[in-house]
Simulated scan of single mutants.
Amino acid sequence: MNGLHLTADLRGCRCDLDWLTNAERLLAACVQRVQASGLQAVAHLGHRFPDTPQGPGGVTATVLLAESHLCVHTWPESRSVSLDVYVCNFGADHSARAQQLMDALLALFEPGEVLQRSVERGAAPAA
């Protein structure tokens, strides 16, 4: 289960509001960026949440990868997004592809502020 787990919390996204509210459009963009990064999509699902008094509902877009997953959650009322890219490195190291996918998503949302984390998963603990 060795792998790389990348997360990013985005604030102040300057992208078109449609990227934060249109599940179908966002999911299609995610699948395209997965393919462009050299990862393999095996299934995908998008969901739009209902509007609230604070504004339009956000979306969740999930792409199951042969290598693991991509998940995007949006909060249009605060122009915020959370990104989650996880690749297991069974058989090959997919870390560079995961980073390429993360970079493409960051460019899509045009955040004003980004908090990124990277976790090596499954590594044996130091003795």
Rank of each mutant, 00 (worst) to 15 (best):
A23D: 12
D16K: 11
L101M: 10
A41H: 02
V34A: 04
G55K: 06
W75Q: 11
P53C: 03
V34F: 00
A61R: 02
E110C: 11
P76I: 00
R14C: 10
C71D: 13
A126F: 14
L17C: 06
V63R: 04
V72E: 00
L27T: 08
V119P: 10
F90V: 15
D93M: 06
A43T: 05
G122N: 03
Q54T: 15
G38P: 08
L108C: 00
Y86D: 13
T21Y: 08
V59C: 11
G57Y: 01
T62M: 12
A96H: 03
R33I: 00
W19C: 06
P76T: 00
V42M: 10
H94D: 11
E77G: 09
C71L: 15
A43G: 06
Q40H: 15
A66W: 04
F49N: 12
F49K: 01
H69F: 04
Y86E: 12
V31R: 12
R11D: 09
G3T: 02
T52Y: 09
L4Y: 06
E120D: 15
R121H: 02
C88T: 15
G91K: 09
R25I: 09
G112Y: 03
S82E: 10
S118T: 14
L105V: 03
T74A: 05
A107L: 09
S37T: 03
L6T: 01
H94G: 06
V31N: 05
A124N: 15
A104W: 02
H44V: 07
A127K: 15
D16Y: 12
R117V: 10
N89R: 11
F49A: 05
G112Q: 04
P50M: 13
F90D: 14
M102V: 00
V31Q: 10
D16C: 09
R117S: 15
C15R: 14
N22T: 01
E24Y: 05
Q99A: 11
G46L: 04
T74Y: 02
Y86M: 13
R97I: 11
T74Q: 00
